[in-house]
Structures are given as C-alpha cells and as structure tokens.
Amino acid sequence: MIVFEKPKSLVDIPMHYCPGCTHGIIHRLVAEVIDELGIEGKTIGVAPVGCAVMAYNYFACDMIEAAHGRAPAVATGIKRANPENIVFSYQGDGDLASIGMAETVHSAARNENITIIFVNNAIYGMTGGQMAPTSLPGQVTQTSPYGRDVKTAGFPVKVCEMLKELDGPEYLERVAVNNVVNVKKAKKAIKKAFTNQLENKGFSLIEVLSSCPTNWGMTPDDALKWIDTNMIPYYPLGVYKDRSAQNKEKEEL
C-alpha cells in the first residue's frame, strides 16, 4: 500500500528552500490540487521574484518567470491569449503587496479569471530579511532594526481586507500552514481557487500565512508558533469574499 507519494505535478528534484520554510508545503498543496483536478497538462504557472523565484523548476506544468511584482499582469496576458489554460501565479508579500500592488489590485478589479497563491511571511526572504509591506508593527527586520515603527514605516497591508472592498474579485481567503488542521484548510481553499477558474468564475486569491525561520531568527517550531501568536491575531484567517456563495444566499432570500 502506498502511504506517501510526491505529487505528479512536482518535479522530482531537491528544492532550494531553507530548513523549516513552509514554501515546500505550499508548493505541495498546489501540486496536489493540480493532480486531483487533473489539470497539469493545461496549467501554466507564473513564478515571482523572491524566495519562490525558481518555482518554475519545481512545478511540472509549463512555467514562466515574471519580473518583480508583475505576475498578475503576466498571468493576465497568458489567460487572455489562452483562455483554455489554467493560469496561476505564486507570489510573496514583497512581490504582491509592495512592488506589484497595482497589478494585484487591478487584476482583482478586472476579475481576471486567474488564481493567485499569495505567500505572506511578513518579511523579504530572498534578499536576507528586510521589512516587508506585511511586517508587523514592532517587528525587527534588517531594515527595521528597532522594530517596525508605524510612524515612519507605516502600517502593514492587509491584502484580503483591502481587496474585498472591490466589486471585481470572486474569491478571497486567508489561510495558514502552521499546523495540520490549518494545512488541510489551506488545501481546501487552494482547491476552491483553482475550481473557480475552471468554472470561469474569475479572480481567486488565497493568502497563505507562512513562516520564515531563517530571517525571523527562530527555530522552525517557534516560527510556526509565532504565526499563531503574532500573525493570525493581526491577519485573521477566513473567507473574505465568496461572490458565488453570497449571490446564492441572496437568491435564497
């Protein structure tokens, strides 16, 4: 009996992520969903700039590397040219919520029929731990050595809360991957986001609270706990928008 398998839509090579990093889990969840939906052959993924920059080597579907922050625009181009393909982008917080904010907001406003996996670990990992748009107030990073001072560095960006005010997007959910229960919920959300695209419902974004033990300066275990104690209180988990469900509710009323 097979009890454990690598998803088929992940290439069988070692990943470059640090020990304890949750990118591996999120890659796996995306790949499992692609396998389960049987869409590997028609899926095209867009890799970001950031820690997941080399995601194009890990996913077995067709892949493209985007410029920093531009993944939603690149995904838009691909989806408009090939509507029959399933297009997803995989982006970090600096990529999606800082340099690529315009692309994020406008692809949501257009309700582009794409799926965005947004990995929020509250720090710039690839460049060595600088303050991210989602770094928490008081969080110490390489570029906020005295802790993020909201008076000078401003407040963190709550992406789901912000996007839900738009009429455009179909589905917005925030999940976390810091324990088994949350990982299961995250997979369900990711599957929903891909299914929405298959059903031509439009823009779905899943924000995944993720850990960065290396740049947070913690053990992997402590980092997972920090998600519970510090991140989730600031970034509450849950479905922020589900237009189809809301419409259905309205109809039933």
Binding site: R70, A73, G77, N82, E103
Partner: peptide
C-alpha cells in the same frame, strides 16, 4: 481579439510578456 487598457505601462508590457510566452503575436 484582446484590447486591454492596463493600469500602467509597466502592467501593459508585462501582459505583452505573458501573451508573447504563449507564442502569439502581441
């Protein structure tokens, strides 16, 4: 065909990049 008024020149050229990657004239 597709006509899309992008949110910026930057977004527009990256949409072009996306279509170009599919091998279609853009």
């Amino acid at each position: 065909g597709t006509f899309l008024q992008a949110e910026s020149e930057i977004a527009a050229i990256n949409m072009v990049y996306g279509v170009a990657a599919t091998g279609k004239p853009v």
